[in-house]
Simulated assay, not measured.
Amino acid sequence: MTNINKGLLHRAFSAFVFHPHPGKLLMQQTASEKITFPDMWTNTCCSHPLDDFGEEKIETDQLGLEHELGIPNSQAPPDNFQYLTRIHYIAPSDGNPITPWFKLIARDYLFEWWNILLSKKKAETGL
């Protein structure tokens, strides 16, 4: 919290993978080895964008959910991801069982997003 209280923020992203037919969200439990928010339940995938160092952007075969979760790019191509929103929050790693960003997103956005995505899917498939 020391860096956060100084106003030093960092960027992160979260991916939410929904299965369209049973209407379920793929969730994960974070690794025990994580420095912040270990062993907590959260959305499908969370990470940090690469910095502006060229050598960090060369990561062969590490694009998308295939690297993170073993989901082949053919099933979840990065080009099919849809940007939904941006949030700004401050939260300590205080041991609650659910990550603070997921609590915030679930409370304020998740059900609306799911309805929008279902409507879009129905319009695309003509169902």
Score class of each variant (00 low, 15 high):
96 N>P: 00
93 S>N: 08
25 L>W: 02
72 P>M: 03
116 I>Y: 13
64 G>C: 04
63 L>A: 10
29 Q>N: 08
114 W>N: 13
77 P>Y: 09
44 T>E: 04
53 F>P: 00
35 I>F: 10
123 A>P: 06
57 K>E: 13
36 T>K: 11
22 P>K: 02
106 A>I: 03
66 E>H: 06
67 H>D: 08
18 F>D: 00
26 L>N: 01
57 K>T: 15
55 E>M: 07
72 P>Q: 01
6 K>L: 13
30 T>S: 15
13 F>K: 01
68 E>G: 00
20 P>T: 12
54 G>P: 02
61 D>P: 00
13 F>W: 12
79 D>M: 03
99 T>M: 07
26 L>G: 02
111 F>C: 14
56 E>H: 13
12 A>Y: 04
123 A>Q: 15
25 L>M: 10
87 I>H: 04
39 D>P: 01
70 G>K: 01
22 P>G: 02
58 I>P: 00
110 L>M: 13
9 L>Q: 10
86 R>M: 08
119 S>T: 14
18 F>G: 02
59 E>D: 10
78 P>D: 01
26 L>W: 05
90 I>E: 14
55 E>F: 13
42 T>Y: 03
119 S>A: 15
90 I>V: 12
97 P>F: 01
103 K>D: 14
112 E>S: 11
86 R>W: 10
1 M>Y: 04
114 W>D: 11
109 Y>Q: 14
16 F>K: 01
117 L>W: 11
90 I>K: 11
112 E>I: 09
20 P>K: 10
2 T>F: 08
38 P>M: 06
94 D>R: 10
88 H>F: 12
90 I>A: 12
117 L>R: 14
